[in-house]
């Protein structure tokens, strides 16, 4: 169950209109424009709420995405690379976000460092096709995952703070 802060953040992300996946040519470009518009708005919202926590970019076809996400714990910034492919069945199915460098460190991951989303995520996504996009995936999927897993991994000593990340 999403907390109030997440619900508020999600409600401020613009919804998408175009129901189109990477196998559709022109409509996919339209969908991608909407994805970027929603992502830009979400990052702007995060910045103004002093909660900037990820960056994403894609290849020019918009089929492969990569970026960084970070989590502040005890005033230290922990940053990770993330990546995912857009499945051919998108947006009916959400992409599987991976943080390869954490692979094998937590049981809340599938092979290849794909994060394991809560039971609530899939029904929620299915009910909101095609209105939810990648910004929603970040807010409802990756964000809550980091909030639970990173403090736990730090507490267990499985991730250490990198010195160069100190100036956050």
């Amino acid at each position: 169950m999403a907390d109030e802060a997440t619900r508020k953040a999600v409600s401020e992300i613009p919804l998408l209109k175009t129901n189109s996946g990477p196998r559709d040519k022109e409509l996919w470009v339209q969908r991608l424009r909407e994805e970027y518009l929603a992502l830009i708005k979400y990052v702007e919202n995060n910045k103004s709420a002093d909660n900037d926590w990820f960056r994403l970019e894609s290849n020019k076809e918009g089929t492969r995405w990569f970026g960084k996400c970070w989590y502040i714990h005890d005033l230290l910034k922990y940053e990770f690379d993330m990546e995912f492919d857009i499945p051919v069945t998108y947006p009916a199915t959400a992409p599987e976000v991976a943080i390869p460098e954490l692979d094998g460190k937590t049981a809340k991951m599938y092979r290849g460092g794909k994060i394991c989303l809560t039971d609530h995520f899939k029904p929620l996504w299915a009910r909101n096709v095609p209105k939810f996009g990648l910004a929603h995936l970040m807010a409802l999927g990756l964000g809550p995952w980091l909030a639970v897993e990173i403090p736990d991994l730090i507490a267990k000593g499985l991730i250490q703070h990198k010195e160069q990340q100190n100036n956050s």
Binding site: V29, R33, K131
Partner: peptide
Amino acid sequence: APAGEMVEETEQSLEELMSQMKRM
């Protein structure tokens, strides 16, 4: 009615949006 506002249409091309996102 979908609960929430939809993305606002802009004149920006996909390439422009991609580079705007990159600069953030």
